[in-house]
């Protein structure tokens, strides 16, 4: 583990556009694309709505900067796809952690705290605390 590295984040969505848009928003709020790696893994391999284990594996490798990777899924089978990958993590750089977090608020909170240099557990904590954030 590199102490100067930032935690990477992977967004797993059924929709490529949703994952890409949320990643873009989180990067912008946290200071721009030169900071934390926020990598979208949305849609199926043939471009439809659904999730792809191959896309998630590729995104985790892209997001890894040596401090671990947090994965935030959108709904249902996105969670199942990630869980199946994590059951056999030999192909993945470690540690890779799955967050139980709201998709948009979770990635924004996680990216901001990762940009400040927080470790993987603190980044997971920020994402999961996002359930408590009120908009009004």
């Amino acid at each position: 583990m590199n102490p100067d590295a930032t935690v990477g984040i992977v967004l797993v969505s059924h929709s490529a556009a949703l994952a890409a848009g949320a990643a873009d928003l989180a990067s912008q709020v946290a200071g721009g694309p030169d900071g934390v790696a926020v990598i979208p893994a949305g849609g199926t391999d043939d471009g439809g709505l659904g999730t792809s284990a191959a896309k998630v594996t590729h995104a985790v490798k892209q997001a890894d900067r040596g401090a671990g990777v947090l994965i935030i899924p959108d709904l249902g089978s996105a969670v199942l796809t990630v869980r199946a990958l994590l059951a056999d993590p030999d192909d993945l750089p470690g540690p890779v952690v799955l967050a139980d977090a709201p998709f948009v608020e979770g990635v924004v909170a996680a990216t901001v705290i990762a940009a400040a240099g927080a470790d993987i557990e603190a980044v997971r904590g920020a994402a999961e605390e996002a359930w408590n954030a009120r908009k009004l």
């Binding site: 901001v112 705290i113 940009a115 400040a116």
Partner: peptide, 9 residues
């Protein structure tokens, strides 16, 4: 976001 990144340091 900029403020939270700064404060968290």
């Amino acid at each position: 976001g900029q403020l939270a990144v700064a404060a968290a340091k």
